[in-house]
Design a protein around this nucleic acid. Structure first.
Lengths: 174, 174
DNA sequence: GCCTATCGTTTGTCAGACAACCTATCTTCG
DNA sequence: CGAAGATAGGTTGTCTGACAAACGATAGGC
């Protein structure tokens, strides 16, 4: 495949192709719905993501959890607090390293997550209602793979793009 | 970085329940890059979206612009202020309705947008670098169509999903 | 000519993100 | 062993951006 030629914008670009806007739109709606659905889960979608990783993956420590989700550690602190208060997870001292805490899900946490996942899956279908059924799965899959690639290549600052002005030199008064 | 090996994600459950996270991840990265690229455009990606609509679509008024982008009017006020100060757009009184302002792009605004779009397209290719080339276009297209459908069906509060607890009936003591 | 709705603008409030700092513990090295 | 630095987790404070409410100006109905 030859290089991407970003200078040739598909003529349709004017309306449908605001990728950033579109992503924001979909994500916003996803948030609205999920936040509504998971209102009694301690921190809504935040708690959901964390609980999901705790349940589905054997996560060594809080730090690893933060890295896995690409969120700040200080967020983890209070979300885990509240998830623990709700009896969904437990913070146990790591016998190997007493600085670290192992975060493990309780049985109740697993049940709650299972129910939450059912609801979220349903909500997602609704959010993507504008797409025919089979394309929803494609979209989810592509999003997941794009996100994983991004997460794997963590260093956000890739200087391959020069930082020069988009504005013309301001001689043409219009 | 000792024990954790965050890349060991057995594939069976890593996707399917973290669509929201994936979207957030992609969008965050998009933001980082675009905000970097458009740092001399008055409000970064915000100004970019607004300018794009002003240039590409004949938008009657600020209110219509806000509705088109699904953003708050109060945001439009100051972003348009700064875009106008930068000489990219103009606010003209609507001859039909002197409450309303027509927002039109200047020639400079058009040029700036064209340049910005080139850069953004390039950045987007980079953000989606984890996907093979042809799937990027699919992803963009799906996102665009999903977003438009969402935007068309604006009323966010659709009570088709009951708001009941995800938590089991609390048999555990605290 | 009033009264109400609408457009754009301004202001205030609130939650979430992020950085800086702190404490406890582990590790390394003298 | 003990001191010094590194690391895990937690706390605090600041900053930004979103949203609601109030405001002046103008249009349209009666």
């Amino acid at each position: 495949m030859s290089v991407t030629d970003p200078c040739e914008l598909p003529a349709d670009r004017k309306r449908g192709s605001n990728f950033g806007w579109s992503l924001g739109m979909v994500l916003r709606r996803w948030h609205e719905r999920v936040e509504e659905l998971l209102k009694d889960l301690p921190h809504g979608s935040r708690g959901y993501h964390i609980l999901a990783v705790v349940v589905h993956e054997e996560v060594p420590t809080q730090g690893a959890l933060a890295a896995r989700l690409a969120i700040d550690r200080s967020v983890l602190t209070y979300v885990i607090d509240d998830l623990a208060n709700a009896g969904l997870i437990e913070r146990r001292p790591d016998p190997q390293d007493r600085r670290a805490r192992r975060v493990v899900a309780t049985e109740r946490g697993r049940q709650t997550l299972a129910e939450a996942e059912r609801r979220v899956a349903h909500a997602e279908d609704h959010v993507l209602g504008g797409l025919p059924e089979e394309q929803r799965e494609v979209f989810r899959d592509l999003a997941g793979r794009a996100a994983e690639a991004i997460h794997a290549a963590a260093p956000a600052t890739d200087p391959c793009v020069a930082a020069q002005s988009v504005l013309p030199p301001a001689d043409q008064t219009s």
